[in-house]
Design a protein around this nucleic acid. Structure first.
Length: 584
DNA sequence: GCCGTTTTCGGCCCGACTGTTTTCAGTCG
């Protein structure tokens, strides 16, 4: 389940938002926000820290440390409660609408009594906004567009939130006597980027104890339905969870059925029908006699239909049935194939942890290499300079001397450090530094951070030019989308992918759960051009380093094998790729 | 509210963009 750090960070963030909404001191709000981020990204569990220990977290002083210790021991956060009493929860949710910030949300609440997204939409349609100072027709339009964008995420949760919840439910139910199997299925098992609701399956003879324990979970806010084979609940994470208890005999058929996708299931059932069989969540049956043939394991069901077991990530009816029939399913990349991370930050720019800490934690993950890629100067807020990044290079080289030589017990030996940078691709496709300076880096990630509104042609040219830069190795978060917040930029995918393949530039699969960029469909398309990929955490804190698993999940949905991903390669092969055909 | 080669006050990542204004507030990264 979520660490106490995440829980505390969320409360501090809420407090910061409410300060901002009520027009409190903007600096104070920012301090709470910063503290929330620092605590969320802190390596040690805050529950193990006293007030003194908390104050060692940067951005946490006496006042915040006291509030956190009070909250952890009593569950009270008085200052927050006071603001909550003044501002309905819905007003804070308004600020989640892209383009609508705390000040406008407060004005809407004070002047029009708006305290939910629905009321907001109603007010816009009633043309009540345009009389307000600072609001006009374009603002109305932008807000409506923002609401639409938010709703297109359909109230779906990010995969890390859903996975966290599912793993906790599974762990709890697995401990109950009589539990023979327990696992999550559904879109979460297929690794989709966002999750509508969580499906958990239990194999057991008796369902009662499981239904009871499930409904009593501490984060269950409402039991929607409860019967002998299925219980549905809403949780305080905003996600619904369905629990199904099935007879042990039906486990495989049930997993197949509830994992989906619907389209995949339909195709599989069609095959069954043609074989004079009938497939349901209870098993594979002879259509005439009704006799059950197989149902204990997914493998058995697929096998009886003449198919090899199909990995859940592929079950979208995107050609996996045909590939399975021809025995041409790809050997999908696995998390253990990754040898390193090629896009990470430190507190030299907007990361939270210092270089040594990030490196130490990365080494624990067993990486063979690790690239530090802080932001370059054109992202002005980061205040990078040549001097600062060269000083960092010295530190990286020194640490490489320590970690690179370190003998390790596993097969991989020590962890080599690469010094890199995340460049900013400007509107013309140029990047921060001249070629001479870029040549000093081991790896250059280049990403778009602004001017998302350019035309399709301009954006295409911009990315192609970045690829053609002989020092740019990886295009970072290529579409720049933020799930539920910002749509991706639109460019000619085929033209850019072709440029990547031609120039030896990798496309990133940014593994952060709110990015997952490239997404699965685009990966499928890119690999047809022969594009190489880099699965990167883009970590800004120690816990972020673990996000690689979501990138691997997305890569699997894009049918990728290990060989197509440059950070599965041994370092010598990787270095050759990073030279991009240049001499040296 | 935090922090300190400005050390108990006075700063606080800095700039662009947008839509509203006619000089600026709000939002975003």
């Amino acid at each position: 389940m979520a660490r106490s750090n995440d829980e505390v960070a969320e409360l501090l963030r809420e407090y910061a938002d409410l300060i901002a909404i009520t027009g409190g001191d903007a600096f104070k709000a920012r301090v709470y926000e910063k503290a929330a981020r620092a605590i969320g990204g802190h390596h040690a569990d805050v529950r193990t820290l006293d007030a003194e220990g908390l104050r060692e977290i940067p951005g946490v002083g006496r006042s915040i440390a006291d509030k956190v210790t009070a909250y952890l021991s009593t569950g009270d956060f008085a200052a927050l409660e006071k603001l909550r009493a003044k501002i309905p929860e819905g007003v804070r949710r308004l600020t989640a609408v892209p383009g609508l910030g705390p000040r406008k949300a407060y004005t809407l609440h004070q002047e029009l009594g708006v305290s939910s997204v629905d009321e907001l939409v109603e007010a816009i349609h009633a043309e009540r906004l345009r009389d307000l100072k600072g609001f006009g027709p374009r603002t109305e339009e932008n807000i409506l567009h923002g609401v639409e964008l938010m709703r297109s995420a359909g109230g779906r949760a990010l995969i890390d939130v859903a996975l966290d919840l599912a793993e906790d439910v599974v762990a709890t139910l697995s401990r109950i006597d009589g539990c023979l199997r327990c696992a999550y299925a559904g879109s979460l098992r297929r690794g989709r980027e966002t999750i509508g609701d969580v499906d958990v399956l239990v194999a057991a003879e008796e369902s009662g104890p499981f239904m009871e324990a499930f409904a009593a979970l501490p984060y269950v806010s409402e039991v929607i339905a409860r019967g002998p084979s299925k219980t549905s609940v809403r949780t305080d994470k905003g996600l619904s969870v369905d629990l199904r208890v099935v007879p042990p005999d039906s486990w495989g058929a049930a997993m197949l059925y509830f994992t989906g996708s619907k389209a995949h299931n339909i195709r599989v059932r069609e095959i069954a029908v043609r074989e004079k069989l009938k497939l349901s969540e209870y098993g594979l049956f002879d259509a005439e006699s009704g006799e059950r043939i197989v149902s204990r394991a997914e493998e058995e069901v697929y096998a009886r239909l003449g198919l090899p077991w199909i990995p859940p990530a592929l079950r979208e009816d995107r050609g996996e049935i045909e590939a399975a029939r021809e025995d041409a399913l790809p050997e999908l990349i696995e998390e253990s194939d990754l040898r390193g991370d090629l896009h990470t930050h430190t507190d030299l720019t907007d990361g939270l942890a210092p270089l040594e800490r990030m490196v130490a934690e990365a080494a624990k993950l067993g990486h063979a290499y690790y690239a530090v890629t802080d932001h370059a100067p054109n992202l002005y807020m980061q205040q990078m300079t040549e001097e600062r990044i060269l000083a960092q290079r010295e530190e990286v080289r020194a640490l490489d001397g320590v970690y690179g030589r370190r003998g390790r017990t596993d097969r991989r030996g020590g962890m080599r450090l690469l010094h890199g940078v995340e460049l900013n691709i400007d509107p013309d496709g140029e990047v921060d530094w001249p070629a001479g300076f870029l040549a000093g880096f081991d790896v250059c990630v280049a990403s778009i951070h602004s001017h998302f509104g350019q035309s399709r042609e301009e954006l295409t040219r911009r990315l192609v030019r970045a690829c053609e830069n002989p020092h740019v190795n990886i295009i970072g978060h290529p579409t720049t989308r933020i799930l539920g917040k910002r749509p991706g930029i639109e460019f000619d995918l085929d033209e850019v992918f072709a440029a990547c393949a031609r120039t030896g530039t990798a496309m990133e699969i940014n593994a952060h759960p709110n990015r997952l960029d490239l997404r699965d469909e685009d990966i499928l398309r890119a690999r047809r051009h022969g594009v190489r990929f880099a699965i990167d955490s883009d970590a800004h804190s120690v816990p972020d380093l673990g996000h690689l698993r979501f990138g691997v999940g997305t890569a699997r949905r894009g049918w990728l094998t290990a060989d197509e991903v440059i950070n599965t390669w041994p370092l010598t092969r990787l270095r050759r790729f990073l030279r991009k055909g240049r001499r040296g």
